[in-house]
Design a protein around this nucleic acid. Structure first.
Lengths: 236, 236
DNA sequence: CGGATTGTTGAGGATACTCAAGTTAGGTGG
DNA sequence: CCACCTAACTTGAGTATCCTCAACAATCCG
């Protein structure tokens, strides 16, 4: 269901930041847009990387599966994010699987256009490098959390990240506005859904969050932050 | 102890790959080289990022320290590696501390030259992006290890990485040819020096490695690989 | 030679995992 | 619209891994 795209749709997309309208048009002319229903796979780990993408709306989950079949969530893809840029890592296949967790729309370019975009549009290259820098920093932050923090704090950090990147303000807190299961949170924090369930139950009793089946509302972000920073006894 | 640098010294440095000699000379003209004795700090976490670097020889350890004072080793810097590129992450300070673990020589550029290098030398930008891509992949690999593997396997992976990146072949195995303490390995794998000591002792008894104070020789890389992949009962 | 850093080893205990059984919520089809 | 089925979640009990605490030994450096 490919179709061409107008500039106005990508005004706020970081990849196009600092570009002239003409330059944006030039790049968009090679793109097509595509809709992915919730639950649909955009690409799968190991697949030949034929396209790279920018998410316009919706939400994706990128996972990696080990040889033994264990899954980890590498990141959530939010609107405006680049994803599937295997070429930038000098790879010909996708290192992970991208799944639309809700209905999503993405722009796509054939990977064969990558080199000419990089060479012809220094702005594109610079913006891509910036995005990779941010991902690198987030990866380092998470590594430090894994190295030094116990499970409850890691879960607190993960939930805060979800709230920051994909949260919508509501009357009584910040709502994670896409379906997120305990299993998902477990795969982000390197624990089990059982432990996540116990932790969230304790937080819920203390009034910090409000759970539900694939639902999550952060009632008191500040207290969650205290738990994440370890300045709090811990509610478990 | 700054001084100018000749092209021949950087023939094998990835940052200069694919550049004409004239281009290399142009970039090198702005660099100075500096020697760091073993144990010396190149830059410290939080410091204003005034330079970026390429390591010519020696070995650095980059660490991050948490608010509570816990240290983690972000990476080892090997000859040829770019480091201290805070600017690429849109930071004005260094996110970690770089320490020379042995006598080392690095090229340095003032960070004020970064933008003009990036804009004037597309090759430099592309090579930098590639380096970041590799670091991002390594970070994801380590995250997956933290998420899914027990300590012994994580330590095995860390030792294999050390052997691959900083190993020298000897008669009876691969020697890590810079000083590495159990504490270092613990900070790479998110465990304690006690546990690392116990693991290495067990491996040593089985003839897989040979330890010593800040010394490490991998006698049987293949068996270590099996432990890392979990195809082995585990020697602990 | 003496002090400091690094490493070893043991005992005990806490965190979080596994195993197990059940409950709730939501979607599906009759 | 209700009954059923499945996926998501809850909760408990037992246990393994690994951490903490502690004391000591070895190695290096000045």
């Amino acid at each position: 269901m490919a179709m061409t795209v107008h500039r106005s749709l990508v005004a706020a997309v970081p990849m196009f930041a600092g570009m002239s309208e003409a330059e944006q048009d030039d790049i968009l002319a090679r793109a097509s847009s595509r809709h992915y229903a919730g639950g649909t796979v955009v690409f799968e780990q190991g697949m030949l990387a034929e396209n790279f993408y920018v998410l316009l709306s919706g939400r994706l989950r990128v996972t990696q599966t080990t040889a033994e079949g264990q899954q980890t969530i590498v990141r959530m893809v939010n609107p405006g994010d680049l994803f599937g840029i295997a070429r930038a890592l000098r790879r010909t296949d996708y290192p992970g699987t991208a799944l639309a967790v809700i209905d999503s729309v993405a722009l796509q370019w054939p990977m064969t256009d990558w080199d000419s975009l990089v060479e012809g549009h220094p702005r594109f290259l610079a913006n891509t490098m910036l995005a990779m820098g941010q991902r690198l920093q987030e990866a380092h932050t998470r590594l430090q959390e894994f190295s030094t923090e116990e499970v409850e704090r890691r879960v607190a950090h993960a939930v805060l990240r979800l709230a920051n990147q994909g949260g919508r303000k509501e009357a009584d807190g910040i709502r994670i506005d896409f379906p997120i299961s305990k299993q998902d949170i477990a795969e982000m924090t390197g624990t089990t859904l059982h432990t996540v369930s116990r932790i969230l139950t304790a937080w819920e009793k203390a009034g910090v969050v409000e759970g539900g089946r694939q639902k999550l509302l952060v009632r008191e972000p500040h207290r969650l932050f205290l738990i994440a920073e370890g300045n709090q006894p811990g509610l478990l």
